[in-house]
Computed example of a mutant assay.
Amino acid sequence: MQAHLDQSRWCISQMGHLAGDVTAAAVSASIVTPAVAIIDRSLVEQSAFNQPILRGLRRHALGALRQPGLFIFQRPFGIVWALYAATYSVANVTDTITRKLKITAAGTITFATTMLANVPLALWKDMRFAKEYGIGPGPDAKTSRSTVPLQVKSLARMAAAVFLLRDGVTIFGSFTLAPWLSDAIPDDLAYSPVIAQLTVPVLTQLVATPLHLFALDMYTRQYTVPFLERVRYSQQYLPSSTLLRCVRIVPAFGIGCLANMELRAALHTKLA
């Protein structure tokens, strides 16, 4: 009888931990989504229409402040929120289960499952943003990129492959490399987990941004272009895009991950 009661308490405790995992993920996603949605849409418009990045940021930020309800219920917010809520949830739940089962490769398994959740959703998000905000009339109606008959149908698939590679770099830096480096930092250095979680994902954008711009160009210009010309054109905004994506990664995988970890730990304690 006592064994049955202990087992019931254990199951209730684990259900509480899993509920805390999902709740922490949802709240953290809500924190980071506004900034990420605004930045991502502005980057697409800059790449596709040569729009000044500050103009796009200002337009969308003011729109969000003036009509927050409309902003939250618009498609960009929902797409980005779903991406990060799912990513954080899978990372949290996998970590909880693998640690409770005392699996030695818990970190590797968490990385793999997080990749499986994040990569297709990030690809879906990027394709939707590129299609809706990178083709057709420009955001200020002064520029446009008309839809061109597809001459190279494989370009969309190639763009997807490059987006996948970009996401692999970001996920590895955020969920695997950052904790590894945090453990390697001497214990007497204060806030080492915070330092690692905020800096490592940002530095991954030095590699991820050129891949992102190249993939975005392949998707929005799905016709034959000499390789070197495509590289030159896609990388024309590399400095500003890299800076902005470094800023973007701070809420997405820095502040977001930290908020997720802190909320998760607090909820695990409360719901245990």
Score class of each variant (00 low, 15 high):
L213E: 13
V32P: 07
T108H: 05
T110R: 06
L206Y: 11
G138L: 10
L116Q: 04
P193K: 15
I185A: 02
A112W: 02
R248W: 01
S8H: 04
E262A: 13
A85K: 09
S240Q: 14
Y219C: 05
P239W: 13
S144K: 15
A184K: 07
S30T: 11
L263I: 00
V93F: 00
P149Y: 09
M261I: 09
P68Y: 13
S8A: 15
A259V: 02
Q74I: 10
D187V: 01
G56S: 05
R55E: 14
L228P: 00
H212D: 10
A159C: 07
L43S: 11
E132N: 10
F175K: 13
T209K: 06
A196N: 05
L211E: 03
I72W: 07
P120Q: 09
A25M: 00
T224N: 09
F77C: 15
C257T: 07
F111L: 15
Q197H: 14
K153T: 07
T108V: 13
E132F: 08
A178P: 00
I171M: 05
P52N: 12
D140A: 10
D95S: 15
V32M: 12
M1R: 09
Y219L: 05
A265C: 02
L18Q: 00
S182H: 02
Y191A: 12
G254S: 07
D188T: 00
F77I: 11
L267F: 10
P251T: 11
S144E: 07
V27R: 01
F253N: 13
P210E: 11
A266G: 04
I195P: 01
P34Y: 03
A82Y: 00
A208Y: 09
T96M: 01
L238I: 05
L165P: 07
L271N: 02
Q46D: 04
R41Y: 02
P34F: 04
T98Q: 08
R232Q: 09
K125L: 14
G56Y: 02
A160C: 04
L181D: 02
A272G: 09
A190S: 14
P210S: 14
G63V: 06
M158Q: 10
D126Y: 04
W124A: 13
V36W: 07
A48D: 05
F172Q: 01
T94P: 04
A156Y: 04
M158A: 11
A178T: 07
R99W: 07
L244H: 03
H268A: 02
L54N: 08
S234F: 12
S30V: 04
A266F: 05
H4Q: 12
A161P: 02
Y191W: 13
M158W: 09
M158E: 04
S192L: 02
A85P: 03
L101E: 03
I185S: 00
R58M: 05
R58S: 13
K142L: 08
K153L: 09
A252C: 06
V22Y: 03
A25P: 01
P120V: 03
H4M: 08
M1L: 10
R145F: 05
G63I: 07
P251K: 09
H212G: 08
I31V: 15
Y237Q: 10
R157H: 13
K102M: 09
L123E: 05
T108R: 08
R157P: 00
G56C: 06
V22Q: 01
S240K: 11
L181M: 15
R248E: 11
